[in-house]
Amino acid sequence: MLKVEKVVKTYETVHAVDGLSFEARPGEIFGLIGPNGAGKSTTIRMIMNVIAPDSGSISFDEKPFSEAMKARIGYLPEERGLYKKAKVEEMLLYLAELKGLSRAEARMQAAPLLERFKLSDWRGHKIEDLSKGMAQKLQFIGSIIHDPDLVLFDEPFSGLDPVSQDLLLEAVLELKARGKTVLFSTHVMEHAERLCDRLLLVCKGRELFSGSVAEIKARHGSNSVQIEFDGDAGFVAGLPGVESVRAYPRWIEVGLKAGASADELLAALVGRLRIKRFELMTPSLHSIFVRLVNDAGAGVDRDGGVPVASSKEH
């Protein structure tokens, strides 16, 4: 559905996006993840033809962007806003009409969506009366009301309460189930972990990793075990295959060397400690993300700024 090939965008001396390539397929949720200022929004804006790439190509079903494509795409930009003076339902119908729906069709689509996102009672209110979260839900509805084939959500969950986040998560999963192509960006790894089939980890405009969540864990996951016990565990650090031991009040976390197996560790512990819990930990996407980004030397910096110094490296 969507294919991005070697896109580059440079602002003066900063490489905002530096040769990213990826493909998002129907029935799949593709995550664009990375720290603030990694180039996620710039990439999405280039896909939406808001800004033009310096080089590289972006195609939709092998075709370049066209005005006609706009009707098949739903877009929730990072910078969100609606007409403050417009009424909730009016605004929604207007957004639908701009995507080519007739007023009657728009009305039919709007009612169940407003219901689902608990905005039905607000349909006659002005948008300035809505809370920020409600306005964001409204905007989310606006981006899917015309049943697009491809949806682009830029940080869709930011600023939402947990209940609303779940409503959105459900809706996104439903889009996937209906064979739509979903691309979303986030720097919250829990969301990426729950939603993404595949993801692209971006840092300083460059690809750090691309593949499925399982792949990234297999490749970059560290091997660690949590042990809850009674007794003196001082000897654990000296065992073969143990790389690190981290003590917590009620348990220790043991990092294993590459190739070492948890079974051997368990065997070595039996009889020396009274084990209450022995658990193999899969590393969270979060910790992998933090490690990869730190290794890349960018750090997670403030909003909006790609570190200027980074341009020297290229």
Binding site: M48, E67, K70, P77, G81, L82, K84, Q139
Partner: peptide, 13 residues
């Protein structure tokens, strides 16, 4: 200023 511009331009010219 209301940041509607990107949404608008994602639908029409």
């Amino acid at each position: 200023t209301s940041k509607t511009v990107e949404i608008m331009l994602s639908s029409l010219s």
